[in-house]
Computed example of a mutant assay.
Amino acid sequence: MAITPVTPIRRFDTLDDFLGTHFIYTYDNGWEYEWYAKNDHTVDYRIHGGMVAGRWVNDQEATIVRLASGVFKIAWTEPTGTDVALDFMPNEGRLHGVIFFPRWVHEHPEITVCHQNEHIGLMEESRARYATYPKLVVPEFATITYMGDAGVDNDDVICEAPYPGMTDDIRAGRYYDSDYRRIGH
């Protein structure tokens, strides 16, 4: 089944255009992710599909740069030892991501399915306890299915664990109010 990209919320050119944007995207392998460019050095995300579905993270330090007009690269290393590199092309409704999962995450993904911020010690302990190599490298294109202008440093964007149907609620306008705050909170 082909996934249709969402129409961009605005024309993206500069890094300022990109920062504060909230995305939902589905990789060609079917994994669904939600990701927020919180500011010029941190990202928040929730994972809704794939081997670590249910995982969510706030304030992940990242390198965020503009490669060309409307093309942005984000890269980080998680406490799990997982490395991530994303190339967003929001004007085209696409991105390319490469995730470098350590062997232990591939063999024990359930350990990482939590709010990482509350379990940093467990992530570091697991990284030291289990094998990290060979890494599982997952390079995939993805289709952006949602873009929202959440503003910079909005802690309401990724504020709770993912639940079944959450991304549908977000896309349908049932999750955030007009000020991009979680409805009911």
Rank of each mutant, 00 (worst) to 15 (best):
A150E: 10
H108R: 13
Y45M: 00
E61A: 11
L86I: 06
H106I: 02
V113R: 08
G121S: 12
G70Y: 00
T132D: 03
A2Y: 07
D149T: 15
P162R: 12
G54N: 12
D156A: 14
V52S: 00
E78F: 01
W104I: 02
S69Q: 08
T145N: 01
R171P: 00
M147L: 05
P164V: 09
A128D: 07
E92W: 08
D87N: 15
L95C: 03
A62P: 06
M147A: 04
H22T: 11
F18V: 11
T63Y: 14
P79A: 00
I111V: 13
G151D: 03
E61R: 12
V137E: 09
E118H: 13
P139R: 10
M147T: 08
T4M: 13
G49K: 07
E107F: 05
E110S: 02
K73T: 02
W31N: 03
G148I: 09
E124P: 15
F12A: 09
F101E: 05
A2W: 06
A53S: 04
L67N: 13
M89K: 13
T80C: 14
L136R: 12
Y176T: 10
G97K: 00
T21H: 07
N91G: 05
V6W: 08
P109D: 12
E124G: 14
T132I: 05
E118F: 15
A128I: 03
V137W: 10
Y175Q: 03
D40Q: 07
T167G: 01
Y130I: 00
D149W: 12
M123V: 10
F141I: 11
Q60D: 04
F18P: 01
L136N: 13
I9Q: 06
S178G: 08
G50L: 10
T63N: 15
T7P: 13
L122K: 10
A62E: 03
V152T: 07
A128C: 10
V157C: 04
N91V: 09
G184R: 15
R174L: 09
Y176V: 12
A62G: 03
G148M: 05
I74W: 08
R10W: 09
V52P: 01
